[in-house]
Simulated assay, not measured.
Amino acid sequence: MGKYGPTIKQIRTSKNITLKETYIGILNKSFAIDFEKGMYDIKFSKMLEILNRIMVSPEEMIFIHNKYKLSKLDNIMENINTNNLKTSCKYITKKLENINKTINHNDTKTNLKYMQLTLLKNINLKENILKKEE
């Protein structure tokens, strides 16, 4: 995936935000320069402060970092038709199978999305059972 510093520099310079405006009180100047060169990583809490300063969400930064492409998992989630989720348990099951083929089960974000779909499937099943009972 690579270092995020060069991506932060790309965003910062495209918005004409100075190094000082971005990092004052967060990182010292020499460390900030080296961070933007990709020589170091920083704590997530500091990254959030920097993103706030340059007015970019973590999701936007990752999207830019990935050369404006969604990850395989994000692509699957993006293409889910919400109407089908509400009406078709088979549709949800198929999406869960697709995700299960591509996911890294050690990744928290991926597991959360997988659990979301599993929950939607279970809610859908319950609603269908209730409708049939009526």
Rank of each mutant, 00 (worst) to 15 (best):
I123D: 00
K86T: 06
K109W: 05
N100K: 12
K46M: 06
H105R: 09
L70F: 00
N79T: 10
N16G: 13
S57T: 15
I54W: 09
Y91E: 14
L125K: 11
E97N: 12
F63R: 14
K29G: 04
S45F: 06
K46D: 15
T108D: 01
N75M: 13
N128R: 10
N81V: 12
G5P: 09
K126M: 07
N66F: 00
T13Y: 08
K95T: 13
I99A: 09
T102L: 14
Y4H: 06
E133W: 13
K101S: 01
T102D: 09
Q116S: 02
K69F: 00
E127Y: 12
N79Q: 11
T13V: 08
N106G: 08
K20W: 05
N128F: 00
E59R: 13
I33A: 11
N98Y: 12
N66K: 12
N79S: 09
L48K: 12
N66I: 00
N128L: 07
P6G: 09
F63H: 13
K109E: 04
I42D: 04
Y23H: 12
I76H: 06
A32T: 13
K37T: 09
S57Q: 03
K20T: 12
L96T: 11
T93M: 11
D107T: 08
M115S: 07
K20Y: 14
T108W: 05
I80V: 15
N122C: 04
K109T: 00
V56Y: 10
L48H: 07
K86F: 15
I64Y: 10
K121T: 00
G38K: 14
N75H: 10
M55K: 15
K72L: 11
Y114W: 11
K9V: 00
T7D: 05
K69G: 00
I80Y: 07
I8F: 05
E21I: 05
L85I: 15
D41A: 07
I11D: 01
A32C: 07
I26V: 14
R12N: 03
I103D: 02
K46I: 02
V56C: 09
I123Q: 04
S45V: 07
F31P: 10
D41R: 10
K3P: 02
S88G: 03
K43Y: 12
N100H: 08
H105Y: 08
E59K: 14
R53L: 01
Y4E: 05
L130T: 01
K69T: 12
I76G: 03
S88M: 01
K72T: 14
S71Q: 12
T108A: 01
